[in-house]
Nucleic acid binder design. Structure first.
Length: 667
RNA sequence: GUCCUCGUAGCUCAGAAGGAUAGAGCGUUCGCCUCCUAAGCGAAAGGCCACAGGUUCGAUUCCUGUCGGGGACACCA
């Protein structure tokens, strides 16, 4: 594979530092991978620039400019191919360099040769990453906030894979506990009263989710789930013969909150249990469908029930809790529920997350309960077992994409990894070093504020009224193009870094216009494709062979052409950066910038000569450049899970009717 | 109260392993299609990078504090 100009220059600079080290100018050479190279914003600063002389000046006991001069001379010595046409020391000590034709020509040839794989690099030190994201409770449909986490996680997985890491994705299903209990109970309420259910569904169908004239139906469980979807699940289950026995029961006891801790009543009433099971499974199916529509698929769905051994197999949650206690990381103690009223009550088991030997960044503010005084394990206990299992499976990096409202949970989880490491050391596990707080990274995803035409869309889970991810995709999809909705949702989320709050304006996302950046990039790709198609239709199709060989590239003379080529060649650089910082949004910004560079060159061509012209060599050279740009944009869009259309339908004219004009006029 | 996070152009946001004159879109103003998509391009205007200290050759970037926006502080998940 042909090196990109970036790789090539890095190699040369590294060679130069080797020579410098050999002559005693530097104490040690620099690795190519450690050299930062950038495309300067300023045209006069060369094609590429590096701050290498700054970073080495101190070690060389020299000043950056003097060192830069020497490095520049050494670079010229080692550059036998003339990949670098000119190199100069500028400003306080930057090395600015201009590329020789061979360097960027080879870059373009490399893109043609790599094709759909351009941007994927093999990594000398691949990380084994387990990426957990979404993991929303299966007690309700996904909303936009989940959608953001889904898009970010999915794009991050793609970026990491492209950068040569080994990635698995997982969704953790919290199918045990109080929330599942409430959820099942809520479904049960509607299931056993068909009359009221039908009436309620009619109210919802009428369009107003909270318009119950007499208030929400009496007897509905306190803190139950009040959404219409609950009644819909009940309706779907109503004809299931297995549910019949459940309907007649006087009260609700699914015991979903249990682990195996109470042998007297280990599993609740079978009929209720079956209902809960059906209900959350139905929800998981719906969640998976919504995610699938968004283009998000998981390698694995991890059931919390399985960790508890509720579906057979060992109870790994209890096992972890016991071992932590044995190792001195958990203790039985008194908490707030521990009063005099019930002397028989057991003691809760606390994880000692406040221990001084936990590094401060991973230390919790207080000890947390992992097994309640009644013997039921908490969510935290299950998560301990889950993360223990993740590391036991050999992953070197655990990445959990979490909503920012869960940030308080992070230190506790990292503290647990420290404890598990110590535990394994005590047990003599040779792999104990794999367990440590810094194995876990938690990119936090900020909230999404949903707007419609600049005004907030009210959301509130308690009232049962909230806008689902599916609703948003529906609203943002343009008729005739089912991909448009998911494309717009994905790109909108990827246009923000994760830890910034985002306003998602339904109107803007639906609009096929410039304030919707996905159209800008897709249009760029379509325009490139239509040029290539046009060339073929006028009898001058791109000569693939010549593009691979770089036969005609010498005909490209404009600075804008070299810039565009170089911009394309930067794609793998960008990918490595995005992977390292876990920031897929960088890809979205890169694509937008690349398209802007292309549009600029294209428009300039109306003066300086269009792509398809009289000179066959120049035409071929420009077509090769366009093809390379199209390849990169396509690869980037596909990486982000967004379609890259080859043509886009021309939009209808704006509505210039008097009514519209009047509406926009000042009053 | 403790902790986390964000404060960059009128608006929405990029940028930073410390580096050259801080960028883009929208909005405003002025230009550019006989043409392979004007869903585009060029230009102008718009900034004490919240504030105050510190670290050093150099800070919008790192550290500390202050002030603002958001969030978290359960035997919920």
């Amino acid at each position: 594979m042909l090196p990109t100009p970036f790789d090539r220059v890095r190699t040369l600079l590294a060679l130069a530092t080797e020579r410098a080290a050999a002559t005693g100018l530097l104490p040690a050479p620099v690795l190519a991978a450690d050299i930062t190279l950038e495309r300067p914003k300023e045209a006069g600063h060369g094609d590429l620039a590096t701050n290498l002389a700054f970073s080495l000046a101190k070690a060389a006991r020299s000043n950056p400019r003097a060192l830069g001069d020497k490095l520049a001379a050494l670079v010229a010595e080692v550059d036998s191919d003339h990949a670098i046409a000119q190199i100069e020391v500028a400003g306080p000590g930057f090395l600015n360099l201009w590329l020789g034709p061979v360097a960027w020509h080879d870059g373009l040839r490399g893109i043609a040769a790599a094709g759909d794989n351009f941007g994927r690099t093999s990594n000398p030190a691949p990380q084994k990453v387990l990426l957990e994201f979404v993991s929303a409770n299966p007690t309700g449909p996904l909303h936009v906030g989940h959608g953001r986490g889904a898009v970010l996680g999915d794009a991050l997985a793609a970026v990491l894979r492209a950068a040569g890491h080994e990635v698995s994705t997982e969704y953790y299903i919290n199918n045990v506990g109080n929330q599942i209990h409430k959820f099942g109970q809520s479904v049960w309420f509607w299931l056993r009263d068909p009359t009221r259910r039908t009436a309620a569904l009619a109210v919802w169908a009428a369009g107003d989710p909270v318009a119950f004239p007499e208030g929400f139906p009496a007897g509905f469980p306190e803190d139950g789930y009040r959404g219409a979807y609950i009644a819909q699940i009940a309706r779907d289950l109503a004809n299931d013969p297995a549910m019949a026995a459940c309907v007649a029961l006087p009260d609700w006891d699914d015991n979903a909150a249990w682990g195996a801790a109470e042998p007297e009543n280990p599993s609740g009433r079978a009929d209720n249990r079956r209902l809960s099971l059906r209900a959350w499974q139905a929800m998981v199916v719906r969640i998976a469908a919504d995610l699938g529509r968004l283009g998000v698929r998981f390698d694995r769905w991890q059931s919390e029930r399985a960790l508890h051994g509720l579906d057979g197999g060992p109870d790994r949650v209890a096992d972890c809790a016991q071992r932590l206690q044995r190792a001195g990381w958990a203790y039985e103690g008194a908490g707030k529920d521990d009063d005099d009223s019930d002397p028989d009550a057991g003691k809760a088991l606390f994880f000692k997350g406040t221990r001084e030997d936990i590094p401060k960044a991973f230390r919790d503010g207080k000890d947390r309960v992992i097994v309640r005084s009644d013997g039921r394990p908490t969510y935290f206990a299950a998560d301990i077992a889950y993360h223990d299992d993740k590391l036991a499976r050999g992953y070197t990096h655990l990445v959990n994409v979490l909503g920012a409202d869960h940030h308080g949970y992070v230190p506790r989880l990292k503290g647990v990894l420290v404890a598990l490491g110590d535990l394994r050391r005590q047990e003599g596990d040779p792999n104990a070093a794999l367990w440590s707080g810094d194995r876990l990274e938690v990119p936090l995803v900020q909230m999404v504020a949903l707007l419609r035409d600049g005004k907030p869309v009210p959301m509130g889970k308690r009232s049962g009224e909230f806008v689902t991810l599916a609703d948003v995709m529906d609203e943002v999809t343009t008729p005739g193009n089912p991909r448009s909705g998911p494309d717009a949702v994905r790109f909108t989320f990827l246009c923000r870094k994760a830890d910034a709050q985002v306003d998602f304006d339904l109107e803007v996302a639906r609009r096929a216009s410039l304030d919707n950046p996905v159209y800008y990039v897709q249009y760029g790709h379509a325009r490139m494709c239509s040029i290539l198609a046009r060339a073929a239709s006028v009898g001058q199709p791109l000569d693939q062979r010549a593009a691979l060989d770089g036969t005609h590239l010498g005909a490209l003379r404009l600075p804008a052409e070299r810039d565009l080529a170089l911009h394309c060649c930067e794609y793998p650089e960008l990918m490595a950066r995005a992977a390292r910082s876990r920031e897929p949004h960088q890809v979205a910004y890169y694509l937008r910038d690349l398209c802007a560079a292309f549009h600029g060159w294209y428009t300039q061509g109306k003066q300086t000569g269009r792509v398809i012209g009289e000179d066959p060599a120049l035409t071929q050279a420009r077509l090769a450049l366009v093809a390379a740009a199209a390849q990169v944009v396509r690869n980037g869009l596909h990486l982000l899970g967004i379609s890259a259309p080859e043509r886009m339908a021309v939009l209808a004219e704006d509505d210039d009717s008097p009514a519209a004009a009047a509406a926009g006029a000042p009053a």
